[in-house]
Simulated scan of single mutants.
Amino acid sequence: MISMFLVFAVFILFYINKMTNALCLQKEIPEDRQPKVFRTINILITILLVSSYVEILYT
């Protein structure tokens, strides 16, 4: 079960980063601010994935 969740999590993170890149291009976010946007979104998605895994694990 953990391996299936890890594959799912990697897919989600990859797709979210792809959408974040499209957002940065569409909104014309300056190059110096883009790493901060990516870092913030990746941290929030990671927290969401970890909390989802913990909820599945203890349910």
Rank of each mutant, 00 (worst) to 15 (best):
M1H: 12
M1V: 08
I2F: 11
I2E: 13
I2M: 11
L6A: 09
L6F: 11
L6E: 14
V7H: 07
V7E: 13
F8L: 05
F11Q: 07
F11H: 02
F11A: 14
I12C: 09
L13Q: 15
L13G: 10
I16Q: 06
N17L: 04
K18E: 02
K18H: 04
M19P: 01
T20W: 08
A22R: 14
A22V: 14
L23C: 07
L23A: 10
L25P: 05
L25A: 08
Q26W: 14
Q26G: 12
E28W: 00
E28K: 01
E28C: 04
I29T: 00
E31H: 10
R33L: 00
Q34W: 03
P35A: 10
K36P: 00
V37A: 01
V37W: 04
F38N: 03
F38T: 02
F38G: 02
R39M: 07
I41C: 12
N42V: 01
I43H: 12
I43A: 11
L44K: 14
T46N: 10
T46P: 01
T46S: 15
L49W: 10
V50E: 05
V50N: 05
V50T: 09
S51H: 03
S52H: 01
Y53L: 14
V54L: 15
E55A: 13
Y58E: 12
Y58M: 13
